[in-house]
């Protein structure tokens, strides 16, 4: 009896301690970045271009570059990913080929991002002749996010009760009508959440854009798909390891980190909000 209580107390302390530690590290990390980054933060930092060998000025081209390349990523991967997921869950026969395809997709989501970067160079930059450009980088990041979007969408579609499909088909709906009218709507929150989370990971990636389109320094935001661009994660990497006077640009590096973390944080919050809001709407419809 006594031993049981001791074990129970020990177990509980382990769980509490783990949680406290994790949260503490996270808070420390965020506070540190925020405090260091705050020194340079301001309107000018967000809207100006880097000046004097990046030791002064702002990071606007990097912000714009990351925003644009992320937008391209979504434009490519969302329709393709959702389409593939719908095909796999709603149309494809449940046979060995389908299972292999599914397994391959799951595996792709574990492939290191630098491999995607190399693949992007071969396929988009060289073979398709798109050069190192916003378009090549967007396509490469799109490839990277595809497996995440497909997997999230498949899960969301699978969670829609079969009875909805049967009900629609029994009324004379075609398969496509059933998908569009009763399967997709309830699956949408899950799909969008998956897409936004995938995007927020892609926005922070450096490796896939390294050889496909990102530039060391550009004074302006990209204006066409064939332009090179600056990006927040790469800019951060430059400022913290490649710059000729690392000490001098440290505050700007922290500022960049703060903006990047803020962006990812905002995206994740959006995903959270989308999910809970659409779920609520569905619940009231329930």
């Amino acid at each position: 009896m006594r031993a049981k209580r001791v074990w129970s107390a020990l177990g509980r302390s382990w769980l509490v301690l783990s949680t406290v530690l994790v949260v503490a590290v996270l808070v420390l990390f965020l506070v540190h970045i925020a405090r260091q980054g705050w020194q340079v933060m301001g309107w000018e930092f967000l809207t100006d271009r880097p000046r004097r060998g990046m030791t002064q000025g702002g990071i606007f081209p990097a912000i714009a570059g990351t925003a644009l390349v992320s937008l391209l990523t979504v434009v490519f991967s969302l329709p393709l990913g959702v389409g593939a997921a719908i095909y796999l869950t709603e149309y494809a026969p449940d046979n060995r080929a389908t299972r292999w395809i599914r397994l391959a997709i799951r595996n792709l989501s574990g492939v290191p991002s630098i491999v995607y970067g190399l693949f992007g160079v071969v396929l988009f930059v060289d073979l398709l002749g798109l050069g190192t450009s916003l378009l090549s980088a967007g396509l490469t990041l799109g490839l990277l996010t595809l497996p995440w979007i497909i997997t999230a969408s498949e899960e969301a579609l699978k969670s829609v009760p079969r009875a909805y499909r049967d009900g629609a088909l029994a009324l004379g709906a075609t398969r496509w009508q059933a998908v569009r009218t009763v399967v997709l709507p309830p699956a949408l929150p899950g799909i969008l959440t998956g897409a936004i989370l995938g995007l927020s990971r892609a926005a922070g990636e450096t490796a896939p854009i390294l050889f496909t389109g990102v530039a060391f320094f550009l004074p302006f935001a990209p204006t066409s798909l064939s332009d090179q661009f600056m990006a927040l994660p790469y800019h951060l990497y430059i400022l913290s390891t490649q710059h000729h006077s690392l000490e001098k640009v440290r505050p700007i590096a922290y500022g960049t980190a703060l903006v990047l973390v803020g962006l990812v944080f905002t995206l994740n919050l959006t995903a959270f909000a989308v999910r809970s809001r659409m779920r609520r709407r569905l619940e009231t419809a329930r």
Binding site: P161, A163, Y164, D166, G167, A168, A170, L171, G172, T181, V182, P185, P186, L282, A285, R286
Partner: peptide, 14 residues
């Protein structure tokens, strides 16, 4: 469309 069906477990759409 010509042959309607009602299921064991009622299944109105949300």
């Amino acid at each position: 469309r010509r042959v309607g069906m009602v299921f064991q477990r009622w299944n109105p759409f949300p």
